[in-house]
Design a protein around this nucleic acid. Structure first.
Lengths: 334, 334
DNA sequence: CAAAAATTTGCAACCGGTTGCAAAATGTGC
DNA sequence: GCACATTTTGCAACCGGTTGCAAATTTTTG
């Protein structure tokens, strides 16, 4: 069925090497030869088999894209960015869905079988050790949206979650809220832990203010709604820092159902700044996470590792910023 | 770096074929041999190179997943389902993002270079001819969410969009709306055209009722909002069938901004029944599209084509159903 | 227990490419 | 035009596996 190198060589009456060389840039081929080969290739509709060549070159241009966040809308943006950027660089994403049951060991094995050149683990909820399994298997790996660390074991690209928790607290304090709260995502996610830590650290500077905390079961609308409904049964705080935007939307839904007004009765600040936060019906005040930079930088890093496999693990941390919308009361004009 | 067949063969002191056979099911190997080989493989940490073997077997177990819908949240659900299901069948999704600029020819070539076993084109907005390019290149292809046709050129799995348009119209009529309208997605999408056709066909049966139509620029929140804001400047209809759920949410946002009530002042029915439609803050009445069946059936079909490449093109159409929520007035109790 | 049948094993060629090396072709200087 | 340097080309081995075939081994049968 498929046209091979050999077919082209025969038709052009040249050696197989000659054909191979015309399709390899940087190889030594005369103009005359190149034209002859290209003509034959054209006529036969030949295009080289990337996998066969990977066998000798050791490069497949396949990048494993591993994630477990197939229910958080922000990840559609993440996948969009990753796939586009990889394509631009001539790389192909091999997608791995790690949702619930799937065994990590398994994906490592599988991605090795397909000899991916590198792996990007895109998740804020996977344990830090997960990406390490790839590194241990000798596969270049970058953990995107992973935990910032001053001595990372693998390359990490993302935000400083501690800092973002601090930023959220500062934002609430600056707006004059007296009783604030942290409503986190799943408690075992490092992102939740770090945001909580930062939040507490900042609040510790304001002993006169009250703060409390609780956790939702997942980074999801339903979980956020459920948790906020629970909170509203007792005396709620004046403002909440929710674990992420989708949790915030769930919380908002609960608040409005109870007939309360945002931001008058309760304030909300989220994290991520996903497209939906911008929708006029939500208009969520949130902390912007620079997805584009994170994605681009992750890819840059994994590409760099191809040439330099033992590159010293590095943490690339991008700053966040507060995006003012309509779910927090304005700054006192003072 | 990597452990190869040869290494295992040497360590186990057997031929390379023997090793190959222990890792190929259905091959003739004695228990004794298998144990010897497996022991050596274990010790060396060997796992076979899937791409090398694809060279001789002609199967890569790679499936191209091609889409251009990286901004519609429903597609996160679609990707989730596709990746899980493919993984369950031992197949790997190679994701291709066709957003805007990317040239279709290009992706065909690329997917051929990676010798994918088959391709799933998941999109309701791509032209019918797109998937054909794969078929013409001899690659098994299924167009998911494609246009239903009684004489399809490639395998199509999806819903009957004409019928769903009809169903929407019926639903509106049954609820006693006198002036109804179709607010479609992009006019060049086949799904839009077909839904419109069905809508009109049904309305033609009710010459006493008024109906009108218009189109949004994209299947997106912003486009739906913009179009509805425009419609609200003149006298709007009593109820709208919006092209899909995300358009509906945009429309709802516009309606509420204008201080109108849903469903009292204006009714909305969407299409897709994405997770977000279920969110209490939206509670969108919509037509459920059976994503799970469509995905599973698409994969089933593409797998079937592996063994039977010239299988006669088939259209698999799944029925939709209306999901009652809160954006249409109730049925008259009559 | 020997002969026939069935099973297991290894050899060697092949899948579709790449690449080091030496031979052939082309270009340069005098 | 000749000797030498440079570029282009083909040969053949290799990448990591699979597989048809025949030889070797084991099992069955009389």
């Amino acid at each position: 069925m498929a046209v091979t190198l050999k077919d082209v060589a025969e038709r052009a009456k040249v050696s197989r090497s000659a054909v191979s060389r015309t399709f390899t840039d940087g190889a030594s081929v005369s103009e005359k030869m190149r034209r002859k080969v290209e003509k034959a290739a054209q006529e036969l509709g030949y295009s080289p088999n990337a996998l066969a060549s990977s066998l000798t070159t050791g490069r497949t241009k396949l990048i494993g894209l591993v994630s477990n966040n197939f229910h958080n809308p922000i990840f559609l943006e993440v996948f969009d960015r990753f796939t586009r950027r990889l394509q631009d660089k001539g790389l192909r994403p091999l997608l791995v869905n790690l949702s619930d049951e799937t065994d990590p060991e398994n994906s490592v094995r599988m991605l090795r079988q397909y000899s991916v050149d590198g792996v990007v683990v895109a998740s804020s909820t996977l344990p830090t050790g997960f990406a390490k399994a790839f590194r241990d298997a000798g596969v270049p790996v970058v953990h995107s949206f992973g935990r910032a660390s001053s001595s990372p074991q693998v390359h990490v690209v993302g935000i400083d979650n501690v800092e973002s928790g601090r930023m959220a607290a500062q934002t609430l304090v600056a707006r004059g809220y007296i009783e604030v709260a942290f409503m986190g995502g799943p408690q075992n996610a490092t992102s939740t832990q770090d945001r909580f830590e930062g939040f507490c650290a900042e609040m510790a500077k304001h002993p006169d203010l009250k703060h409390s905390h609780s956790f939702a079961d997942a980074y999801s609308f339903e979980a956020g709604r459920k948790e906020m409904l629970r909170l509203l049964e007792h005396k709620p705080a004046q403002a909440y820092f929710c674990g992420d935007d989708v949790l915030s939307l769930g919380a908002l839904s609960a608040i409005k159902d109870r007939g309360l007004k945002v931001p008058e009765d309760i304030g909300i600040i989220g994290l991520n700044d996903m497209e939906m936060a911008r929708w006029e019906s939500n208009s969520l005040t949130t902390i912007h996470q620079p997805i584009e930079q994170i994605v681009n930088s992750s890819i840059e890093l994994v590409v760099a590792m191809l040439d330099e496999p033992d590159r010293y693990p590095e943490a690339r941390i991008f700053p966040c910023r507060v995006v003012e919308r309509s779910t927090l009361r304005p700054l006192p004009s003072s």
